[in-house]
Each structure stands twice: as structure tokens, then as C-alpha cells.
């Protein structure tokens, strides 16, 4: 698949979105086990489902753009190092 490589700032923003969604999934799952009323519980549960679906979309986007490679660790490390180098140069 031929896709344009992401610009550095787009890369940063998309990665930040992925991390924020991960954080929201963790927080929502904690909150669900503390909710007492049915109304709050149902709401949080739906929010958790949405967050998981959203996480999948962002992850898929980053994977399609070649930023994530879960199946090839050496390749992923190379990518991470070049990203870090680029960040240092900014």
C-alpha cells in the first residue's frame, strides 16, 4: 500500500492521541468498578466501548502509516530510535 509518510508534527499528534486514549481506557475501567448507580455504570460502560473502538482506529492509522510494527521488534526499535533522533534535532 502506497501511503504518504506522516510529517513529524502529525506523527507527534497521532501518538499523543493514542496515548491519551490508552489512558482514558485505563481510567474508565477503574471508574466502572467504583460506580454504584446503574445510570453512571451504563454511561461509563458505553464510554469504555467507545474509547476501545477509538483506540483501535488510531492504532490502525499509525500501523498503516508504518509507525507501528507489532510483529517485528527489531524493525519497531529502528523506527523508535529514528523518531527519538528526530525529536532531539527539533
Amino acid at each position: 500500500m502506497e501511503v504518504k509518510p506522516l510529517s513529524f508534527s502529525d506523527h507527534v499528534i497521532a501518538t499523543d492521541m493514542l496515548f491519551e486514549t490508552t489512558a482514558s481506557i485505563k481510567d474508565l475501567s477503574v471508574a466502572i468498578t467504583e460506580a454504584t448507580s446503574d445510570e453512571v455504570h451504563t454511561f461509563l460502560r458505553q464510554e469504555l466501548r467507545n474509547a476501545i473502538a477509538y483506540h483501535e482506529r488510531i492504532y490502525g492509522f499509525l500501523q498503516d502509516r508504518g509507525i507501528y510494527d507489532a510483529y517485528n521488534i527489531p524493525e519497531q526499535l529502528k523506527k523508535d530510535i529514528s523518531y527519538a533522533t528526530e525529536a532531539l534535532e527539533q
Binding site: K26, L28, I32, H55, Q63, A70
Partner: peptide, 14 residues
């Protein structure tokens, strides 16, 4: 279990 599964979901690619 709820916490462990939520964390695992954010780490899976398949």
C-alpha cells in the same frame, strides 16, 4: 480482571 483486560486491550494488535 476488569483492569487487566482493559490494559491488555490497549496492547494488542491482532
Amino acid at each position: 480482571a476488569v483492569r487487566n483486560y482493559s490494559l491488555a486491550i490497549t496492547e494488542t494488535a491482532t
